[in-house]
Amino acid sequence: MLKIKNLHASIDGKAILKGLNLEINPGEVHAIMGPNGAGKSTLASVLAGHESYEITEGEILFEGKDLTALPIEDRAREGLFLAFQYPVEIPGVSNVNFLKTALNEIREYAGLKPLSAKDFLQLVKEKSALVELDSSLATRSVNEGFSGGEKKRNEIFQMAMLNPKLAILDETDSGLDIDALRIVASGVNALKTKENATLVITHYQRLLDYIVPDFVHVLFDGRIVKTGGKDLALELEEKGYDWIKAEHA
Protein backbone atom coordinates (compact mmCIF):
# COMPACT_ATOMS: atom_id res chain seq x y z
CA MET A 1 0.00 0.00 0.00
CA LEU A 2 2.72 2.43 1.02
CA LYS A 3 6.30 2.12 -0.15
CA ILE A 4 8.85 4.66 0.99
CA LYS A 5 12.28 4.28 -0.57
CA ASN A 6 15.38 6.18 0.52
CA LEU A 7 13.38 9.25 1.50
CA HIS A 8 15.31 12.43 2.18
CA ALA A 9 13.44 15.53 3.26
CA SER A 10 14.45 18.89 4.62
CA ILE A 11 12.91 22.04 6.00
CA ASP A 12 14.51 25.44 5.48
CA GLY A 13 17.57 23.68 4.11
CA LYS A 14 17.96 21.49 7.19
CA ALA A 15 17.93 17.76 6.44
CA ILE A 16 15.50 15.88 8.70
CA LEU A 17 14.82 12.60 6.92
CA LYS A 18 18.00 10.98 5.67
CA GLY A 19 17.22 7.85 3.72
CA LEU A 20 14.08 6.42 5.25
CA ASN A 21 12.65 3.12 4.03
CA LEU A 22 9.27 1.75 5.01
CA GLU A 23 6.71 -0.58 3.53
CA ILE A 24 3.18 -0.97 4.79
CA ASN A 25 0.71 -3.55 3.48
CA PRO A 26 -3.08 -3.65 3.80
CA GLY A 27 -4.30 -4.95 7.13
CA GLU A 28 -1.11 -4.02 8.97
CA VAL A 29 -0.56 -1.77 11.93
CA HIS A 30 2.87 -0.15 12.11
CA ALA A 31 4.28 1.91 14.92
CA ILE A 32 7.10 4.38 14.62
CA MET A 33 8.87 5.32 17.80
CA GLY A 34 11.91 7.39 18.42
CA PRO A 35 13.46 10.11 20.49
CA ASN A 36 12.61 13.78 20.13
CA GLY A 37 13.90 15.30 16.94
CA ALA A 38 14.30 11.97 15.15
CA GLY A 39 11.95 13.07 12.37
CA LYS A 40 8.70 11.31 13.35
CA SER A 41 6.37 14.26 12.82
CA THR A 42 8.30 15.31 9.74
CA LEU A 43 7.51 11.94 8.21
CA ALA A 44 3.80 12.46 8.94
CA SER A 45 3.85 15.96 7.46
CA VAL A 46 5.78 14.87 4.38
CA LEU A 47 3.32 12.04 3.73
CA ALA A 48 0.37 14.42 4.02
CA GLY A 49 2.08 16.87 1.68
CA HIS A 50 2.94 19.80 3.94
CA GLU A 51 4.51 22.39 1.68
CA SER A 52 7.16 23.54 4.14
CA TYR A 53 9.07 20.33 3.57
CA GLU A 54 11.17 19.65 0.55
CA ILE A 55 11.79 16.14 -0.67
CA THR A 56 15.37 16.06 -1.84
CA GLU A 57 15.69 12.38 -2.69
CA GLY A 58 13.81 9.12 -2.77
CA GLU A 59 10.24 8.15 -3.53
CA ILE A 60 6.90 7.54 -1.90
CA LEU A 61 4.47 5.22 -3.62
CA PHE A 62 0.90 4.97 -2.40
CA GLU A 63 -0.97 2.14 -4.09
CA GLY A 64 1.61 2.36 -6.85
CA LYS A 65 1.11 6.10 -7.41
CA ASP A 66 3.83 8.67 -6.87
CA LEU A 67 2.47 10.45 -3.82
CA THR A 68 4.90 13.34 -4.06
CA ALA A 69 3.35 14.41 -7.37
CA LEU A 70 -0.07 14.87 -5.77
CA PRO A 71 -1.31 18.02 -4.04
CA ILE A 72 -2.33 17.75 -0.40
CA GLU A 73 -6.04 17.34 -1.09
CA ASP A 74 -5.54 14.59 -3.70
CA ARG A 75 -3.51 12.55 -1.24
CA ALA A 76 -6.48 12.67 1.12
CA ARG A 77 -8.82 11.78 -1.73
CA GLU A 78 -6.62 8.82 -2.60
CA GLY A 79 -7.22 7.53 0.91
CA LEU A 80 -4.46 8.95 3.09
CA PHE A 81 -5.45 10.41 6.43
CA LEU A 82 -3.33 12.28 8.93
CA ALA A 83 -4.59 12.63 12.46
CA PHE A 84 -2.88 15.79 13.61
CA GLN A 85 -0.70 16.01 16.66
CA TYR A 86 -2.07 19.52 17.19
CA PRO A 87 -5.54 19.70 15.62
CA VAL A 88 -6.22 23.18 14.27
CA GLU A 89 -9.02 25.35 15.61
CA ILE A 90 -11.07 26.95 12.86
CA PRO A 91 -13.47 29.55 14.24
CA GLY A 92 -16.64 30.08 12.25
CA VAL A 93 -16.45 26.80 10.33
CA SER A 94 -18.80 24.21 11.74
CA ASN A 95 -17.48 20.72 12.25
CA VAL A 96 -20.42 19.23 10.37
CA ASN A 97 -20.16 21.53 7.35
CA PHE A 98 -16.46 20.95 7.16
CA LEU A 99 -16.90 17.19 7.23
CA LYS A 100 -19.71 17.27 4.70
CA THR A 101 -17.54 19.27 2.31
CA ALA A 102 -14.57 16.96 2.86
CA LEU A 103 -16.60 13.79 2.45
CA ASN A 104 -18.31 15.00 -0.70
CA GLU A 105 -15.06 16.17 -2.26
CA ILE A 106 -13.55 12.75 -1.60
CA ARG A 107 -16.64 11.05 -3.03
CA GLU A 108 -16.59 13.23 -6.10
CA TYR A 109 -12.95 12.32 -6.71
CA ALA A 110 -13.96 8.66 -6.58
CA GLY A 111 -16.81 9.32 -9.02
CA LEU A 112 -19.51 8.97 -6.37
CA LYS A 113 -22.55 11.18 -5.85
CA PRO A 114 -22.71 13.43 -2.80
CA LEU A 115 -24.28 11.81 0.22
CA SER A 116 -27.86 12.85 0.92
CA ALA A 117 -28.41 15.02 3.98
CA LYS A 118 -30.21 12.15 5.67
CA ASP A 119 -27.47 9.59 5.01
CA PHE A 120 -24.83 12.07 6.05
CA LEU A 121 -26.51 12.77 9.38
CA GLN A 122 -26.95 9.06 9.96
CA LEU A 123 -23.24 8.60 9.36
CA VAL A 124 -22.40 11.43 11.74
CA LYS A 125 -24.54 9.86 14.41
CA GLU A 126 -23.02 6.43 13.97
CA LYS A 127 -19.39 7.56 13.81
CA SER A 128 -19.53 10.12 16.58
CA ALA A 129 -20.82 7.40 18.86
CA LEU A 130 -17.74 5.38 18.03
CA VAL A 131 -15.49 7.89 19.77
CA GLU A 132 -18.15 8.95 22.28
CA LEU A 133 -18.09 12.45 20.85
CA ASP A 134 -20.91 14.56 22.20
CA SER A 135 -23.22 15.32 19.29
CA SER A 136 -23.16 19.01 20.22
CA LEU A 137 -19.47 19.06 19.30
CA ALA A 138 -20.40 18.13 15.76
CA THR A 139 -22.23 21.40 15.25
CA ARG A 140 -19.65 23.62 16.92
CA SER A 141 -16.79 25.30 15.09
CA VAL A 142 -13.98 22.92 14.22
CA ASN A 143 -12.04 22.24 17.44
CA GLU A 144 -12.86 25.65 18.85
CA GLY A 145 -13.06 25.45 22.61
CA PHE A 146 -12.58 21.67 22.51
CA SER A 147 -10.53 20.14 25.30
CA GLY A 148 -7.32 18.33 24.34
CA GLY A 149 -9.11 15.00 24.55
CA GLU A 150 -12.06 16.21 22.51
CA LYS A 151 -9.76 17.45 19.78
CA LYS A 152 -8.11 14.05 19.50
CA ARG A 153 -11.44 12.25 19.54
CA ASN A 154 -12.58 14.65 16.85
CA GLU A 155 -9.61 13.58 14.73
CA ILE A 156 -10.64 9.95 15.02
CA PHE A 157 -14.25 10.93 14.32
CA GLN A 158 -13.08 12.55 11.08
CA MET A 159 -11.09 9.44 10.27
CA ALA A 160 -14.21 7.33 10.82
CA MET A 161 -16.24 9.61 8.57
CA LEU A 162 -13.72 9.69 5.74
CA ASN A 163 -12.82 5.99 5.94
CA PRO A 164 -9.21 6.20 4.69
CA LYS A 165 -7.04 3.39 3.37
CA LEU A 166 -4.05 4.49 5.38
CA ALA A 167 -4.38 6.42 8.61
CA ILE A 168 -1.34 8.08 10.11
CA LEU A 169 -1.80 8.91 13.78
CA ASP A 170 0.74 11.53 14.75
CA GLU A 171 1.26 11.48 18.52
CA THR A 172 -2.44 10.93 18.97
CA ASP A 173 -1.77 9.89 22.55
CA SER A 174 -0.14 13.17 23.56
CA GLY A 175 -2.21 15.11 26.04
CA LEU A 176 -4.71 12.30 26.60
CA ASP A 177 -5.70 10.91 29.96
CA ILE A 178 -6.11 7.20 30.27
CA ASP A 179 -9.87 7.19 29.61
CA ALA A 180 -9.59 9.35 26.52
CA LEU A 181 -6.71 7.19 25.33
CA ARG A 182 -8.86 4.09 25.65
CA ILE A 183 -11.72 5.71 23.73
CA VAL A 184 -9.45 6.91 20.94
CA ALA A 185 -7.73 3.54 20.69
CA SER A 186 -10.95 1.56 20.63
CA GLY A 187 -12.20 3.89 17.89
CA VAL A 188 -9.11 3.18 15.83
CA ASN A 189 -9.39 -0.56 16.46
CA ALA A 190 -13.05 -0.58 15.46
CA LEU A 191 -12.14 0.99 12.14
CA LYS A 192 -9.49 -1.60 11.35
CA THR A 193 -10.16 -3.90 8.41
CA LYS A 194 -8.13 -6.24 6.22
CA GLU A 195 -8.04 -3.60 3.51
CA ASN A 196 -6.81 -0.61 5.45
CA ALA A 197 -3.65 0.09 7.39
CA THR A 198 -2.54 2.25 10.28
CA LEU A 199 0.71 4.01 11.01
CA VAL A 200 1.01 5.04 14.64
CA ILE A 201 3.64 7.60 15.53
CA THR A 202 4.33 7.82 19.21
CA HIS A 203 6.83 8.63 21.90
CA TYR A 204 5.52 6.18 24.39
CA GLN A 205 4.72 2.54 24.49
CA ARG A 206 1.49 3.29 26.39
CA LEU A 207 -0.68 3.74 23.29
CA LEU A 208 0.57 0.44 21.89
CA ASP A 209 -1.06 -1.42 24.76
CA TYR A 210 -4.34 -0.42 23.17
CA ILE A 211 -3.48 -0.29 19.48
CA VAL A 212 -1.37 -3.37 19.08
CA PRO A 213 1.15 -3.04 16.25
CA ASP A 214 2.33 -5.76 13.91
CA PHE A 215 5.61 -3.92 13.45
CA VAL A 216 7.53 -1.46 15.56
CA HIS A 217 10.15 0.74 13.91
CA VAL A 218 12.68 2.91 15.63
CA LEU A 219 13.33 6.18 13.88
CA PHE A 220 16.60 7.83 14.74
CA ASP A 221 18.37 10.68 12.98
CA GLY A 222 16.08 10.54 9.96
CA ARG A 223 16.33 6.82 9.32
CA ILE A 224 14.63 3.67 10.53
CA VAL A 225 17.41 1.96 12.40
CA LYS A 226 15.57 -0.97 13.93
CA THR A 227 12.41 -2.91 13.22
CA GLY A 228 10.77 -5.54 15.36
CA GLY A 229 7.48 -6.81 16.67
CA LYS A 230 5.41 -5.32 19.47
CA ASP A 231 7.98 -6.51 22.01
CA LEU A 232 10.43 -3.94 20.70
CA ALA A 233 8.18 -1.23 22.09
CA LEU A 234 8.36 -2.80 25.53
CA GLU A 235 12.10 -3.04 25.27
CA LEU A 236 12.31 0.65 24.38
CA GLU A 237 10.04 1.53 27.26
CA GLU A 238 12.34 -0.31 29.62
CA LYS A 239 15.71 0.71 28.25
CA GLY A 240 15.03 4.11 26.70
CA TYR A 241 16.62 5.25 23.46
CA ASP A 242 20.20 5.59 24.62
CA TRP A 243 21.27 2.13 23.50
CA ILE A 244 19.88 2.88 20.05
CA LYS A 245 21.71 6.17 19.98
CA ALA A 246 24.92 4.43 21.10
CA GLU A 247 24.59 1.85 18.34
CA HIS A 248 24.14 4.51 15.70
CA ALA A 249 26.28 7.34 16.95
Binding site: A48, G49, E51, P71, A76, R77, G92, F98, S141
Partner: peptide
Protein backbone atom coordinates in the same frame (compact mmCIF):
# COMPACT_ATOMS: atom_id res chain seq x y z
CA UNK B 1 -5.78 25.71 8.96
CA UNK B 2 -5.53 25.66 5.18
CA UNK B 3 -3.24 22.63 5.37
CA UNK B 4 -5.62 20.92 7.76
CA UNK B 5 -8.63 21.41 5.47
CA UNK B 6 -6.72 20.30 2.39
CA UNK B 7 -5.42 17.27 4.27
CA UNK B 8 -9.07 16.29 4.65
CA UNK B 9 -9.56 16.32 0.88
CA UNK B 10 -10.89 19.85 0.43
CA UNK B 11 -9.51 21.76 -2.55
CA UNK B 12 -7.36 24.79 -1.89
CA UNK B 13 -9.90 27.23 -3.33
CA UNK B 14 -12.79 25.76 -1.38
CA UNK B 15 -10.71 25.64 1.79
CA UNK B 16 -9.80 29.30 1.29
CA UNK B 17 -13.48 30.21 0.88
CA UNK B 18 -14.36 28.27 4.01
CA UNK B 19 -11.73 30.10 6.02
CA UNK B 20 -12.87 33.50 4.75
CA UNK B 21 -16.48 32.70 5.58
CA UNK B 22 -15.39 31.39 8.95
CA UNK B 23 -13.51 34.62 9.56
CA UNK B 24 -16.64 36.65 8.90
CA UNK B 25 -19.10 34.25 10.53
CA UNK B 26 -19.19 36.07 13.83
Amino acid sequence: ALFFLRARGISESKATDMLIKGFMAE
